[in-house]
């Protein structure tokens, strides 16, 4: 409880004081995001989305055109801090693949890409729970969670994802209990 209280006190002090000692990081977060760079990263974003929801017996993120949707959501439906996080994440990812595999992410093998993805996922899942929530509030949403959130949203509400991946009943006409069928897909809409 004391730990929680301590964190809460930090929150009460306001984002400003935390960001004051964060210094350069603070500037990086609040600056006008260089959204024009998203276009250059589009094929990387497409690739990342496909890694989250790959093609199987049903379409994956690439067939459903989700990469473009992720960029649109970053551009229009995301706050400035999170937009910056997303762009820095792409930058970090590019730098990481150069450093560890000496090539662009796009040119890495499937196994290498997986290593890179694992690194970024691991880095961010450490931010779950209460501290994670506080961080998100102060510092915006993180790169990987934005990527995943918009990939899932885009896929599950796309025509391909909703009707082929999931199950979509446009006009059910009734509400009734059923037995779960073998291989039953989840409803696309609740």
């Amino acid at each position: 409880m004391d730990r929680k209280k301590a964190i809460r006190n930090i929150v009460l002090l306001g984002g400003g004081s935390v960001l004051a000692f964060a210094g350069f990081r603070g500037y990086k977060l609040f600056r006008l995001p260089a959204l024009e760079k998203l276009t250059g990263y589009q094929s990387t974003i497409d690739e990342l989305s496909e890694m989250i929801i790959p093609e199987t017996d049903v379409p994956g993120a690439r067939s459903a055109g989700i990469g473009i949707f992720v960029s649109k959501m970053i551009r229009d439906c995301t706050d400035r801090k999170s937009q910056n996080n997303f762009l820095y994440g792409l930058q970090d990812l590019t730098a990481y693949s150069q450093k560890h595999f000496s090539k662009h992410f796009q040119h890495c093998s499937a196994e290498e890409k997986k290593k890179i993805m694992d690194h970024f996922e691991k880095k961010e899942t450490s931010l779950n729970g209460f501290t994670g929530k506080v961080e998100r509030k102060l510092l915006g949403e993180s790169f990987f969670s934005l990527l995943k959130k918009y990939t899932v949203l885009g896929y599950c509400t796309s025509q391909q994802g909703a009707t082929l991946g999931l199950s979509y009943d446009r006009i059910p006409g009734k509400y009734t209990e059923t037995q779960l069928a073998p291989g039953q897909k989840a409803w696309a809409t609740q």
Binding site: D169, P172, K174, Y175, T176, L180, Q184, W187, T189
Partner: peptide, 10 residues
Amino acid sequence: FKDKYYVGRR
């Protein structure tokens, strides 16, 4: 209730 589901959106 793992074997139960529903049809429709109430």
